[in-house]
Design a protein around this nucleic acid. Structure first.
Ligand SMILES: [Mn+2]
Ligand SMILES: [Mn+2]
Ligand SMILES: [Mn+2]
Ligand SMILES: [Mn+2]
Lengths: 237, 237
DNA sequence: ATTAAAATTTAGTCCAGTCTAAAAATTAGT
DNA sequence: ACTAATTTTTAGACTGGACTAAATTTTAAT
């Protein structure tokens, strides 16, 4: 028995995602940072990073997938498509240029720039970003030493290695502090450890134990885990 | 006949309005600008200014009234309370400091600053605003010559008057260009009319007709209406 | 191989802020 | 003073982005 004459079509089609919303931009950036090699990023890890409920991340992944920005394999996680990575890199560029500007021009500390940039990156125009970059003299790195991708998403050469991978006595120049909390950055600053500083590895305990580092203002033990996030290069040039 | 035992209380109480949303901030700022003397601002005028439907403005007014930021007399319009004006002035300060910063530090043109500031004003922290103000040398005016209110909402002294209120031949210094569109600002710039420029009123047609103005780059007729928005003062000091 | 635990998705709500269409109040025209 | 035009408010709906609780799938442990 067919009810005649009434056809209701529910079209959940368009939903044409606003690429420029703060949320979308932050999800893409987070995905980019969590995505090591080719392993897909777990929805929960993503949710944790962005401080939202797992269900919220899942919902967003469905939208981003529909927009062709991520590939979502249900129950397995997701990875950025080329187009998604492009967007993400654009945000990374913005973030890092803003950080550099805050430090150089407005005298922000290393531990303060990230919070402000996290908001500003969504509000500034392309024009403003490029003006900042010009005024700064076209920098290739942010104040933490992280490289700034160019418009094609290419990074400058990086030859630096983690502190803990060097052998003692060689003079080293700190090049980059990776993704540390403001409190950790303040601690490192106080120890004389920041990009550009010249230091020397004094000793290295076995079995990934702490290392002893000679810095411009003293000699300090550093946990292996932390030393992995401090990138340096030989101070020859 | 009373249905027994079931009492449903619908409490539409809290709805504790987020003071820091972009919308709220823009509504307050718009109200402030539209509010001349003590006449309440019409909902429709407000809606027009913010490019939203009248119904949207009404809805927002109800919330702002509930939050004590405006006084809303239904069908008559609304005016800011002291608390609302305070918020609005804070936004005016932000907007103008940002404009000055964009012009001075990032070499924006007079016609470009407003659009960018309109977005940034909602994204920058108090700290960043004050840093900009310091780096700029604590300016008292924005690039259009509009005064920057201080933290208590007080404005610097203003003795300037509209161009059309002066009598011919006196040398005048342009002090401020009020609320003009980017296109008008470009036009004025091209005529040599911008804050700081020294000009001379050559002639004034009767009945609020156009005025003739001698500027650093020529002699130009200016509509009365436009001349009202150009503030100047005698060029004696 | 079952079962228990953990991760993930679905279903159903909520809230801010907008919209359109209809109703109500105000203002203007005669 | 009445009607007509205009302004303003109400009613109802929608969207983006979040949430909680429940269902489902995957993974880990026996
Ligand atoms: Mn962000
Ligand atoms: Mn950084
Ligand atoms: Mn604004
Ligand atoms: Mn201005």
């Amino acid at each position: 028995m067919q009810s005649p004459g009434l056809l209701i079509t529910i079209s959940a089609m368009p939903s044409h995602l606003d690429l420029n919303s703060r949320s979308v931009q932050d999800y893409l950036k987070a995905l980019y940072k969590l995505q090591q090699q080719d392993a897909p990023v777990s929805t929960n890890v993503l949710a944790e990073r962005l401080q939202v409920a797992p269900a919220s991340a899942t919902a967003m992944m469905k939208k981003l997938a529909e927009a062709g920005l991520v590939e979502h394999i249900p129950y397995q996680g997701c990875r950025l498509t080329d187009s998604g990575r492009q967007q993400a890199l654009k945000m990374v560029r913005r973030h890092r240029i803003i950080e550099q500007f805050l430090q150089q021009v407005l005298h922000y500390g290393l531990d303060e720039v990230d919070e402000e940039a996290e908001v500003l990156e969504h509000a500034v125009s392309d024009k403003l970003i490029e003006r900042m970059w010009q005024v700064l003299g076209q920098p290739s790195h942010d104040p933490h030493g992280s490289p700034i991708p160019d418009h094609q998403g290419r990074f400058p050469e990086q030859s630096a290695r983690p502190l803990c991978s060097f052998s003692p006595d060689q003079p080293l120049r700190i090049v980059r502090l990776k993704e540390r909390s403001p409190a950790q950055l303040r601690y490192l600053h106080q120890l004389g450890i920041e990009p550009g500083a010249v230091v020397r590895l004094v000793d290295k305990a076995p079995f990934n134990g702490p290392i002893i580092l000679h810095t411009p203002n003293g000699q300090h033990p550093i946990a292996w885990e932390l030393a992995e996030a401090i990138l340096a290069e030989p101070d020859t040039p």
